[in-house]
Amino acid sequence: MTKKTFFFIALVINGALAFSNTVSFQDDNYTGTVTYNETARPGDAVFARMNVKISKTLKKKNAPDTAASLILMKGNRKIDSAQFYFFNQKAKKQPAAEMLASIPVSLWTVPDSHYSLKIIFTAGVTPEKEIILPFKVEARSFNSEVLDLDERNSGIKQNMTAERMAQIEKLNNILETVMPQDIYSLKPFVHPVKSERMTAYFGDKRVYKYTDGQSETSYHYGHDYGVPEKTDVYACADGRVVMSEFRISTGWSIVIEHLPGLYSLYYHLSSPDVQENDFVRQGQKIGLSGSTGLATGPHLHWEVRLNAAAVTPDFFMRDFTFSSSDGQK
């Protein structure tokens, strides 16, 4: 199958889209645009929004399926990939299609300018097309801290029982699930508590010191809000509750699905107010903060996962789906 590479780039500089580029493409069968964030830092994500209009000639051929994939490249090497999904599942057979794809940029990504994004696009019987997009990973610095754990927290951290391993496996299976039809919110996230006081941040390098003299180093996968016990906790965006239960490591925990592969997590609650399969609205109260599980004091741990990878919640506090580019709210 013949492949052609083509693109036109125009910088979008208005309002919330100042961090994005828009690429236009066309041939005899269709025209379209792709809007995406052209830079990211380790722990961010890349989102690409594609709008495609099928030509009248192609429409007469029963409006063939439209499909596309997004690939993160470093030089000629594939780093990660994701399929585009449709905002409306019926759109895949319509003359105009609107699609979204996203890839997490790992905490361990080496910053430099030798990255690119490749979109592979096809509309039914038409030849496969490639769109190459410039992309850069910029440097990011993280904090470091040492945590001296007491006997209780040392026991939780070093717990290797079958019960804890099963809980970890269950959560991982949820976070690895990508359901293309599960589109609940395209809006920017909001803070999960009314206070913005944080005691720890995404990407902090932590050294845990145990009471037996051993230690372990890991990264902190979310933001910690320093709020008192039983502070109201709110959903950061519309979504479906996919977990609401007590876990050994994270205490009372809630996980909400917002988009295919995109989840928000709320840990160490004193109690949850929602159950699995509940649908919640942005700003809806979902529970009370606490210090259950591995916690050195009352706080809320708020985390965001994309395709199972931890990504900074800050990335999602802006118009990350580029909804304002077409007048959507």
Rank of each mutant, 00 (worst) to 15 (best):
R197F: 03
A18G: 13
Q83V: 01
E196G: 02
L58F: 05
V46G: 12
R206M: 07
H223V: 00
L175R: 11
Y221T: 07
Y30H: 08
T22W: 08
Y85G: 05
T66A: 14
F316S: 04
F246T: 10
E130K: 14
L133V: 09
I286Y: 06
S116C: 07
R305L: 05
Q214K: 15
V34C: 14
R281C: 02
I132H: 12
V274K: 13
G283I: 10
G251W: 02
K78H: 06
I132T: 14
V146T: 14
A235K: 05
L265F: 05
D278Y: 11
T5P: 00
N62A: 08
N173T: 03
I71E: 12
Y266R: 15
N76Y: 04
V311R: 03
V137K: 00
A48H: 09
K74I: 03
G297V: 00
V12Y: 08
K74P: 03
C236K: 02
H258I: 13
E138N: 13
T109R: 04
Q83M: 06
V241T: 09
A16N: 06
K209W: 04
V46E: 13
N29S: 06
A123Y: 11
Q89D: 04
K93L: 04
S264K: 10
A96Y: 10
D273E: 11
T250P: 05
S102E: 09
G222W: 09
L107Q: 11
L100I: 14
N172H: 02
Y267F: 15
Y219E: 03
I132K: 15
Y85W: 12
T35V: 11
P111M: 14
G203E: 11
A82F: 02
G43W: 07
T217L: 00
A45Q: 05
L147I: 15
L294D: 15
L58Y: 09
Y115M: 10
F279H: 08
L269H: 06
S271K: 10
S116T: 12
R140K: 12
A235E: 09
M99F: 08
S253Y: 03
V255P: 01
I156L: 12
A91Y: 06
I13K: 15
I13S: 15
K209I: 07
V304E: 12
K90P: 00
V137I: 15
L107M: 04
S218T: 10
N277L: 08
L133M: 09
R247G: 01
D224V: 03
S116Y: 02
V233L: 05
S141T: 13
T5W: 05
L259G: 09
H299K: 00
Y221I: 07
D212Y: 03
P260C: 13
M1F: 07
F189I: 04
Q275D: 06
F8P: 08
